[in-house]
Design a binder for these strands. Structure first.
Length: 435
RNA sequence: GGAGGGAUGACAGAGCGGCCGAAUGUACCGGUCUUGAAAACCGGCGUGGGCUUGCCCACCGUGGGUUCAAAUCCCACUCCCUCCGCCA
């Protein structure tokens, strides 16, 4: 949620900033009018309530003084005022919830360095990396045997079985088998081990309350993109960002504890409503995938460093895995609702011949913290909202795809990079079962 | 799933219709004393909102209700504890 006080104080700046994201000025003008109306009603209601309270106090006084007649008279007046107060409060609340509702629909103010743009085509590529780049080698071209899609490799080697997944849960729910599962497991262990030096590992629930979803900004806006368990009022988490952001909801943290860094691997559930038929083969887009998330609560001053650390860790993993990737600064048109700045990592997957998004590293400023009410006590003793940053490191389904395509050998086996050896047992080469 | 108990400030814990935004203790901050520290003593010490900056309003798990007046009474829900049942 954006800061209403800031909107009041610097309406032109907020309007100009949000216009870059396509929020019309009129929407913000409506909010400003609602705010004025709300405060006017609030004053009325509150002064009425103050009178009721004062009269009630006097009733008590009169009763103690054994002056029943006076007490009755005061009580009667108070009751009349109370009726008016009730009406005034209802009007105030009605406008107040309308105001809040509208405010919740407003996206975050983009950072000044976020480039202008309409959609993902306008994202700006910051850099590219591939094995040997530092030594001046050109970006790799891929052999014919690497030009095989991972779903074909998966069937060939018996490590990915999309048909069985579809049979059990419908399309876009992958089912991994044998060495394919082991690879998935290896990737999670590998990443969590790399982050363990600075990030506390968390295993959160896979479901969250509506309130929790509100904190990150996933609700009310993205309700259609998530799985709901209506009977119990729960939502399947689309990312570990959801529970991690709410870990300290409603708390005031000591500044000395910041930054608080956490990591978690969870299943991530996404309905991908409206995406049917688009890039949906194999693991390109699935309803359930595993992902290691990095997260930090920090002060505004620490935010840049925290953001950079997550990005560096995600890139570090990709480099260790020897995958070609590019770094994109998202433009205003592609930025998520809650984000002030997002940098995406896309890995090149030769078999499908495309760049796949495997990480999204975002700085939310105090947008999520305002909703989640996570604050810290400054050295001066005042309280301030924390900043939140997070990023994937990494989303495994697509990494899995890029790995098996990149490392497919001429003989059809997949020879995985050595960094995974400690997690793959003796087998770093995946070959078809000879049965 | 059944029975009972509970949820109050950073923590512990009182209050159980009006004088309660809330006793008391601890912690924390400032001061006196001291060479310094400790102890003792004195003072301060929740969060948010509104405006005429001095006042007003809200908050005692959450949401409703009763009342002139609710932390306090009633209802529902959530969570925690104890016991029973079931169970990976």
């Amino acid at each position: 949620m954006i800061d209403l006080v800031q909107l009041r104080r610097e309406p032109d700046f907020v309007k100009a900033s949000l216009a870059r994201r396509g929020v019309p000025n009129s929407t913000l003008d409506e909010i400003l009018e609602l705010d004025i109306e709300h405060r006017r009603l609030l004053q009325d209601a509150e002064s009425l309530r103050a009178e009721v309270k004062e009269l009630s106090r006097q009733v008590g006084e009169a009763r103690r003084a054994q002056d029943q007649a006076r007490a009755d008279e005061l009580a009667l007046r108070s009751r009349e005022l109370g009726d008016r107060e009730r009406t005034a409060s209802q009007a105030t609340d009605a406008v107040g919830s309308l105001l809040r509702e509208q405010l919740l629909m407003i996206p975050n103010i983009p950072a000044p360095d976020v480039p202008e743009g309409r959609d993902e085509n306008d994202n700006v590529e910051l850099r590219r990396w591939w094995v040997g780049m530092e030594d001046g080698e050109p970006q790799p071209t891929y052999e014919r045997h690497q030009r095989v899609a991972h779903w074909d490799i998966g069937s060939e080697l018996g490590i990915l079985d999309m048909e069985s997944g579809a049979k059990l849960a419908g399309s876009m729910f992958p089912l991994y088998r044998g060495a394919g599962v082991r690879l998935l497991r290896a990737l999670g262990f590998f990443a969590l081990d790399r982050h363990a030096n600075a990030y506390e590992e968390i295993r959160p629930p896979s479901f969250a309350l509506t309130e929790t979803m509100m904190s990150t900004g996933h609700l009310p806006k993205s309700a259609d993109d998530m799985y709901a368990i209506e009977r119990d009022g729960l939502w399947a988490i689309p990312t570990a960002e959801v529970p991690l952001t709410s870990m300290h909801r409603g708390e005031i943290l000591e500044e000395s504890r910041l930054p608080i860094r956490m990591t978690a691997q969870t299943a991530c559930f996404r309905r991908e409503a409206g995406a049917a038929g688009r890039d949906t083969r194999g693991l390109l887009r699935v309803h359930e995938f595993d992902k290691v998330e990095l997260f930090a609560y920090c002060t505004p001053e620490q935010a840049d460093e925290a953001h950079a650390d997550i990005l560096a860790r995600a890139e570090g993993l990709l480099q260790e895995l020897g995958l070609t990737y590019r770094v994109l600064m998202l433009c205003t048109g592609d930025l998520g609702t809650s984000s002030a700045r997002t940098i995406d990592l896309e890995v090149f997957s030769p078999g499908v011949d495309r760049w796949l998004e495997v990480s999204s590293v975002s700085w939310f400023r105090d947008f999520q913290a305002r909703r989640a009410n996570v604050r810290y006590r400054t050295a001066e003793g005042t309280t301030a909202l924390v900043h939140t940053v997070n990023g994937s490191a990494l989303a495994w389904a697509r990494i899995w795809a890029a790995l098996v395509e990149t490392y497919r050998q001429a003989d059809g086996t997949v020879a995985l990079p050595d960094v995974l050896a400690p997690y793959m047992g003796t087998q770093t080469t995946i070959r078809a079962k000879t049965s």
